[in-house]
Design a binder for these strands. Structure first.
Length: 353
DNA sequence: TGTCCACGTCT
DNA sequence: AAGACGTGGAC
């Protein structure tokens, strides 16, 4: 009986992964924070930040009282900083509209900006242990394989899984089992055993009834959509270091730019094949920039080499006469919301000394 | 080192 | 509804 399979799955998951910090003494608040962190982010990365974040914001009221800038600083290293702003706004909204009690039904949760179908279901199923299914990319893959669904990956597959499989079958499996345990276990399975590019079927508790395993080629599910050719985009930036005593020259990124609100070294485009790019002003320098030290960064679809150049304030002012950005001297410490790329530049400079 | 890839929600 | 958003892991 399939029910036994899912019990085995839960046993496997609980024996190995109950120690994740958001699972220990689980609360709705820890679930909210961890699930927002886990959007687009691997468990390993979240492990590096979750507990510190909880020390800084032990309750939803602490989070609601904090400033946007402080929450973004606390979010450093997790990326997709819009999530940090959303999380704070959710906290404020929950305090104002729900007396600080995080709702446990899908509809109320989805009224909160930043909480979509996945996170709403995760909070209901995992946070409140009420019947729901949080279908992230892991679940999508596991379910497509288990049921052998050959619908193209993406929104179509999500819909198909939800209407034909997830809702009717998995939800039925939850009768008599914990919704929390089954959701956590399915995610663990996708993360550890039933990975996108590797399926360790010999270890899998669901293998006896898995259609993908039976097919002999489990990786054929989920079916990949046609990949579209996209032009490779590169940027070569100049990152300028101007020091004055213990301070460095930086500027704050605007609302519509990448990494909005963060502080960066003065940054200019030396060369790019994307003519529409408006993130930084263009500049020309006399020397061959390819001989300068550089660090690689990446954001969205761009391959970026950041060339580093130290200069005096006089030289800098001469170079940027026609540029209207406001640059200021600031101390580079933990109170400054400094971009990852800028931190990488300093790492390289310190290493060189 | 480089290259490829994964990943929820909003707009 | 296609593209934006950042980081880290696998090989």
């Amino acid at each position: 009986m399939a029910h036994t399979l899912f019990s085995n799955l839960i046993t496997w998951s609980e024996s190995q992964y109950s120690h994740l910090p958001w699972r220990e003494k689980r609360t709705l608040y820890k679930t909210l924070v961890s699930e927002i962190m886990l959007q687009q982010t691997t468990v390993g990365t979240v492990l590096n930040h979750f507990e510190r974040f909880l020390v800084e914001y032990p309750t939803i009221f602490d989070l609601a009282k904090s400033t946007e800038e402080q929450v973004c600083i606390s979010w450093k290293g997790l990326g997709y900083y819009r999530r940090a702003r959303s999380l704070r706004n959710v906290a404020i909204q929950v305090v104002e509209e729900f007396k600080g009690q995080i709702p446990t039904n899908i509809d109320d949760l989805q009224t909160l900006k930043g909480i979509g179908p996945y996170t709403a279901n995760a909070i209901v199923a995992i946070g409140a242990d009420k019947k729901a299914l949080a279908v992230d990319a892991n679940l999508e893959r596991v379910l497509a394989r288990f049921y052998g669904v050959d619908v193209e990956k993406g929104p179509k597959l999500q819909k198909r899984l939800w209407s034909d499989f997830a809702h009717k079958k998995i939800m039925a499996e939850m009768d008599g089992l914990s919704a929390r345990a089954i959701n956590e276990a399915m995610m663990d399975l996708g993360r550890i055993i039933c990975q996108a590019r590797k399926a360790s079927c010999v270890l899998c508790p669901l293998a006896p009834k898995c259609k993908a395993k039976a097919s002999g080629d489990p990786l054929q599910y989920p079916v990949e959509g046609a990949k579209k050719e996209s032009e490779e985009l590169f940027i070569r930036t100049l990152r300028v270091v101007v020091k004055e005593k213990k301070k460095i020259l930086v500027y704050q990124k605007g609302a519509k730019e990448w990494l909005s609100g963060q502080w960066e070294l003065p940054t200019f485009i030396l060369e790019t094949n994307d003519e529409k790019l408006k993130q930084y002003p263009h500049i020309k320098i006399k020397q061959n920039y390819e001989k300068l030290p550089y660090v690689k960064t990446g954001i969205t679809k761009y391959d970026i080499h950041n060339y580093i150049l130290e200069m005096s304030l006089e030289e800098f002012e001469k170079m940027t006469k026609k540029i209207e950005i406001v640059y200021e001297f600031k101390t580079n410490d933990e109170k400054l919301n400094m971009s990852t790329a800028t931190q990488k530049v300093f790492k390289i400079l310190n290493k060189a000394k």
